[in-house]
Design a protein around this nucleic acid. Structure first.
Lengths: 231, 231
DNA sequence: CTGGATCCATGATGATACTG
DNA sequence: CAGTATCATCATGGATCCAG
């Protein structure tokens, strides 16, 4: 008789947690739902490489575990998946793992590796939270015409990111394409000086925009100079 | 061409971390090494259900990821596996996941579920850290004649556990078998009153032993009254 | 005895195509 | 849009065996 591969049968809280969210892809689904509710196809797009079969299975398992709930309204095609309160409580565990990943498992992107706005902003939150000294309550609004709308926020303690419009006054607003944003992260001055259609529009007070540019620059440098284990 | 199942190819720190420690069993290996170095067979005993093939594979992968290092000394039979500094930095992530597991994924032990001293002490650390108000620097020394030696310690911020002898003065020393300890956790007064060979020896000041008994009792109650999702 | 390696069976995942 | 169906491949578990 084969043991159930979905359990560990250990008397251990960590094993229990991993039975709920330790399967391949599970925590990445949680990651993408931490920034807000998503539809099945939204998740498919962000979880590059997952198959619909596996995504369906993970969503069902996460529902059973009380981590995810599906919002199905009659008369509406879309199903909106969102985290339950228990699921939202995974944020600190995800942050700790992400922080460790940045410090010890980072590597430069491989060719063909798709860069999603949300994931870039997640790395950025980690780096800005832990590797810059310039901290004060700050709110940025980023609108990617081809990849949704995000708010990045420093409450003075840590940076976080959600995929909704800001819930208060913003210091800087960024509008443009995802590609322009990637360019800007790669080299702020060039991207800003160029007059091409790939430009980003930055608005806000001069001081706030300067600080934004500076922090993005620090992030860029951190990524560039990171002692990746496998470059 | 099949994608490599061991990578996600996301530009994402969390995905990078999960490529290193997200495989089945990996974080449980880290869990068991967080309390100190272990031999292959020690790990086999604690990771109930893992096969030697899988454990070998996980250890090699964790070595490649820079999380684990093998200490092979010439002329010595044993191989001692231990965490690297990067591996030790996984403690906070493991703690966060374990805390979530206690709050949202706990269930009573199934019949046949092996209880290991270390794992019981890990749950206990979580519960004492987060569900009791009675906090002060405390150090307990537990010697299980059949399952090693452990130190549990509250630095005033949180409880932790290592599988070594204490590095300082202890408030309470516990000596006995694993079974006696399990009995004691189940019902302190009965186990203590009984004169059977299953007894635990508790030593320390009367106040310290009383407090120990009381905290274990709180843990026992927490486990008993826990609103398990699947009892 | 420790620290594995080998063989086979089964379950989990991926690729691709298709449907209500 | 939100999945199913089918087939192929890979990872894991169970059992057994082996070298130092």
């Amino acid at each position: 008789m084969a043991r159930n591969v979905r359990t560990y049968d250990h008397f251990c809280v960590l094993a229990r947690a991993l039975e709920a969210v330790g399967d391949r892809w599970s925590l990445l689904v949680v990651r993408d739902l931490l920034s807000g509710p998503k539809r099945f196809t939204d998740l498919m797009a962000r979880l590059g490489g997952i198959t619909p079969k596996t995504l369906t299975q993970r969503l069902r398992e996460l529902e059973d575990a009380g981590v995810v709930e599906a919002d199905r309204e009659p008369g509406r095609r879309e199903v909106r998946y969102q985290l339950t309160p228990a699921g939202r409580e995974l944020r600190s565990a995800v942050d700790e793992l992400a922080g460790w990943g940045w410090r010890h498992a980072w590597r430069s992107p491989r060719s063909g590796e798709v860069i999603h706005a949300e994931h870039l902003l997640l790395v950025m939150s980690q780096v800005l939270s832990h590797e810059t000294g310039d901290r004060r309550p700050t709110r940025w609004h980023l609108r990617f015409v081809d990849d949704g709308e995000y708010t990045m926020e420093d409450d003075g303690e840590q940076w976080s990111m959600v995929s909704t419009a800001p819930g208060g006054p913003v210091d800087v607003t960024v509008v443009g394409t995802m590609a322009a944003w990637a360019d800007f992260v790669r080299d702020p001055t060039t991207a800003r000086a160029s007059g091409s259609s790939a430009d980003l529009e930055l608005s806000g007070s001069e001081a706030a925009v300067d600080r934004f540019t500076q922090l993005v620059g620090q992030f860029r440098q951190a990524v560039a100079s990171h002692p990746s284990r496998r470059p």
